[in-house]
Design a protein around this nucleic acid. Structure first.
Lengths: 219, 219
DNA sequence: TAGATTGTTAATCGATTAACAATC
DNA sequence: TAGATTGTTAATCGATTAACAATC
């Protein structure tokens, strides 16, 4: 196939493939079929083949996909064959948590700066990074060649921080605040909103299992 | 319309509606149209009307939707008109961060217990909760009528914890570990995997903006 | 009444899955 | 050669959007 416009659904599956392929690589498994991948990742094998075929002929008929080769290809497609510097804005608990995830980010996306507007936080250490005041954002984005921003500030500040990031020339944003950011079309925004995930989960709970009002809770 | 099987996409938008409706309610706005909602939430007004119409006729032609009434209805649909108790497994930074979000959870989903398998963490306080050893999970799930589990443990432990939660009779899981959990069909699992969000963001970065190898980084 | 907006049908668009020839 | 598995087309399925009669 090759080319066409690629849908977001396809792009979002690529990191999932990559993650499992890395695991296979560690286990020194040389090749993998779309069948096996599908089983492991709960996806239809035809869908996996189609996803990959958008970008090239990576497999071999009768054999499957070479694990190392496919890793290389997907990393290239996702632009993860270069280091991508990331800034974290918001040094609260969530920011702290995320700063530990560098290892999961294919070692190519990397949080290289942390900012907070709350004065007592400025100057403290998060892992190896020193929390900077937010007004150094623009300068640091330039000097450290930061292309992606992660917003972990309170709701009320999220839009303002987004504006500042865009002003500073950032290209993409991962937003953890449960609000809809207004951004220009050239800046890609993904929202990681766990409150939506959790609240929508409630819909699928079974009916008739609520607490009875007279039921006693052991504390 | 009313009824039919409701797609996951529809269910996932309900909390988004709810969140903004609550904001309108706070601002004492009495009614809202699908047009206004769509503008604010970046959604097609027809889609919003259709989503709501799956569950009943909540609007008034020529007027729009009564904010308070719609809040009540959506809360009922999402089963958020009762308290839903939640357990958090994993008392690391991420667990810590999430335990502060109770306020965003419509005050009906509530984290009422925290567990960790790492002995030194057991007994420490997270907000008002004392971290419990993981082998108290089953008992506490029963006694506190916990229906939902949030997994914030390391990758390697996630599947085991999921199994324990299911064994304990939990009905739904929000999984933060970047792996695909294997679970029986009656247990609903949502995955909140920010690494996928972030890595897929890289795809949308502009080409030709990589760091030149000879470019100097100011530290 | 005139203007606004719903609920719903029909049209469109897009994504997933099945099927199979090609070929390792 | 026989078995396995890809890449791709066609079929299916599902979700979004447009349009409009009904009506507040």
């Amino acid at each position: 196939m090759k080319s066409d416009k690629i849908s977001e659904a396809v792009v979002r599956r690529l990191p999932v493939y990559l993650r499992y392929l890395n695991e296979l690589h560690t286990r020194e498994v040389p090749t993998v079929s779309s069948q096996e991948l599908g089983q492991k990742l709960d996806l239809n094998p035809a869908q996996i083949r189609k996803d990959l075929a958008y970008f090239g002929d990576f497999g071999r008929k009768g054999i499957g996909y070479d694990v190392s080769y496919l890793i290389e290809k997907i990393r290239h497609i996702l632009k993860l064959d270069q280091q991508i510097n990331v800034a974290l804005i918001g040094a609260g608990n969530l920011g702290h948590a995320l700063s530990n995830y560098n290892a999961y980010l294919q070692e190519t996306m990397k949080i290289v700066a942390v900012f907070d507007s709350y004065t007592p936080k400025v100057g403290t250490q998060i892992n190896t990074l020193t929390v900077q005041p937010i007004d150094e954002l623009s300068e640091t984005v330039q000097s450290k060649h930061i292309r992606v921003g992660i917003i972990t500030v309170p709701n009320t500040e999220a839009q303002r921080v987004a504006d500042q990031l865009i002003e500073a020339g950032i290209e993409a944003i991962l937003n953890f605040a449960p609000i809809i950011l207004k951004t220009p079309p050239h800046v890609r925004v993904h929202t990681a909103d766990f409150t939506t995930d959790l609240l929508s989960l409630a819909y699928y709970l079974e009916d008739g299992k609520e607490l009875e009002t007279n039921e006693q809770l052991t504390e």
